[in-house]
Design a protein around this nucleic acid. Structure first.
Lengths: 153, 153
DNA sequence: TATTGTTATACTCTATAACTATA
DNA sequence: TATAGTTATAGAGTATAACAATA
């Protein structure tokens, strides 16, 4: 879990939960580090990822991320100021604001995606191709069991 | 990766990297949510986890978490104020400060660990016991490939 | 009156820079 | 002089509450 490696050297008596949590921390640390290189927080990265192929209202985006709409305002403000995304009042509802990636934002999202792919190779390539497929399948099945659309992203 | 589920319904064309990242986000969201129930941030949870079975200097703790020592000061301040951990000047080096869990902090750490274990059951139990062992083994091998002690925790 | 967003305010997390105390 | 921590300051991320505009 949120614990340090048990004992440097004494491996393997962890539970699946421990390993899942460690994997999550390692992965997030990596994302975090890569993001920091471009001054992007994990949340900003998620926003870019989510908007890669859609245009969402503030509220929908907030729901996706599990955040308050007031938080979204600030988040979108900063990203917009940096030219990564844009706002537009909805054509059908004068109250609603739609958010979408700017060309620069889209390019940043693509570029980042490639960086992550590449940065994770040292980890994933530890496993043989068949094992990688098995791991992917197991994780997919596990994730499938998990509910809300707010959690992926 | 940091992307939303491809298309609600169209599953499975993701790469291993995508799935790893999604797993990480789901896991972190869960930890985050459980932590929030006790007003504990992910970082505070990590501190509790790391100190569960050790006593560290401020600098060592900062290294473990990959943070600046000034950040540690604030983090430890707040946790100490809440009675979760304590500071003590090192017996051997008057400049150094050692940090360790208070009894309340230890109890909180244990309690939280159990909560996480329990909260992840819906996910892990999707897999048969043999599959769980296989998943754990695969992840462990993958993690083993990864370097620094700053990244676990 | 209900919904969509924004603004005001406050707190945590984070970093950089300047500082104190000990080695 | 170098090292260990703290303090001052500033910015991002987060939430709650109050508000404006539209439905």
């Amino acid at each position: 879990m949120v614990t340090a490696q048990p004992r440097p050297g004494a491996a393997g008596q962890d539970s699946l939960v421990d390993v899942l949590v460690q994997t999550a921390f390692v992965t997030m640390a990596l994302l975090s580090k890569l993001g920091a290189e471009h001054d992007l927080s994990l949340t900003q990265l998620r926003v870019l990822g989510i908007l890669r192929d859609r245009r969402l209202r503030m509220t929908a985006l907030a729901d996706f991320l599990g955040l308050e709409k007031s938080t979204m305002s600030g988040l979108v403000d900063r990203a917009e100021r940096r030219g990564l995304l844009q706002r537009a009042v909805s054509a059908t509802d004068g109250r609603a604001v739609e958010v979408f990636l700017s060309p620069a934002g889209l390019e940043a999202a693509e570029r980042f995606r490639a960086r992550v792919e590449q940065a994770l190779v040292p980890l994933t390539s530890t496993l043989a191709p068949a094992e990688q497929r098995r791991l992917q399948a197991l994780l997919e099945r596990m994730l499938g069991a998990q509910a809300g659309p707010e959690l992926d992203g």
